[in-house]
Design a binder for these strands. Sequence first.
DNA 1: GTCTATAAGATGATAGAC
DNA 2: GTCTATCATCTTATAGAC
Lengths: 189, 189
Amino acid sequence: MPSCRLAAWRAGADVNQALIFYHFGTVADLIDAACREAVDSSIDGYRQQFAAVGSFVELLRLGRELHDRERATGNVAIMAQLMAGAQSNERLAATARYCLARWNAELETVVARLVDGSAFDGLLDPAGLARAISSGFLGLELYEGVDSAGAHDALEALERLGVLVEVVDELPPIAQRALRVKLRRRTRT
Amino acid sequence: MPSCRLAAWRAGADVNQALIFYHFGTVADLIDAACREAVDSSIDGYRQQFAAVGSFVELLRLGRELHDRERATGNVAIMAQLMAGAQSNERLAATARYCLARWNAELETVVARLVDGSAFDGLLDPAGLARAISSGFLGLELYEGVDSAGAHDALEALERLGVLVEVVDELPPIAQRALRVKLRRRTRT
DNA sequence: GTCTATAAGATGATAGAC
DNA sequence: GTCTATCATCTTATAGAC
């Protein structure tokens, strides 16, 4: 695939309209190529930073950085269009599925590492949590475009919640045992 | 505003196309009217159920019910289009802002009631949390359209997290005091 | 208020010269 | 491979008869 052309097009280069169809066939194919390239390169650029994440609060901080960057590059607007279109177009849904799966895989690795050996080991599901995080991120991206002050408040609230989670993780063993006992009683019901 | 017409149009009634412009002026005005009417009636129908929510897990359950209903009525698809369009169109952004503000107000009331007097009183910000919840809900709506199994996993993970929060809330006073001390030390840093 | 007809503009794509 | 020209179709209206 001529992704050099794609890069030029995304940069706003003044390319002949007919050439787009010559290279990509249909718009759906173009969008697919653009999104896959965008997510692949984005993830590639963040691999080391994901690997360096050592806590939920750090993960959230990385998320905020990513959020700012993706918005500045225009990827958020593209992703918003993609997700909206995907609701009623299976071709776009397949593209979106690829992008989400890539982010999910990255997130799941991090979440599994954080949960493993912590007080939450066995209590939380890394795969499900990764999906919850990526969909939450997605929602915040869209929310930000409409009410950026509100999005900021939401992120601050989540950060406080993250600190809370970490503090629970550092609770003395007696308290943690009490927590586990209560949890077991709850989930059995 | 002739919302009777709107209802007919939304029901898929075979209305003359020119009439839409006669009644609403522009498409943006039509979308605005449709969305406001949809969110107003939706919230109206859920007021009692919101009032009955007594815990975060119950709030999540109500969210799942709402999620299913909104998807079935097609409101999710409309909201997705609205949010995507709002990213680059201020007129649509204003409409979206209204819808989000209405849900936020409802959520904030519930969250404030849940936090008030609990172990999290003063530790969590109801307004920010309400916005985090509504944007998370929004993200899940979109995610569901692309990967419904993944959305289900995400909701299950969130429910487990909710149970965890409630269990922390029921921790013995000694453990809760330890938690608060640690938290204060953390947030000062 | 409601209908038919029509038009301006954008979008997605193809044909064919170079 | 790249360009110009042209297309069918859809969207967003407006005009004017009834």
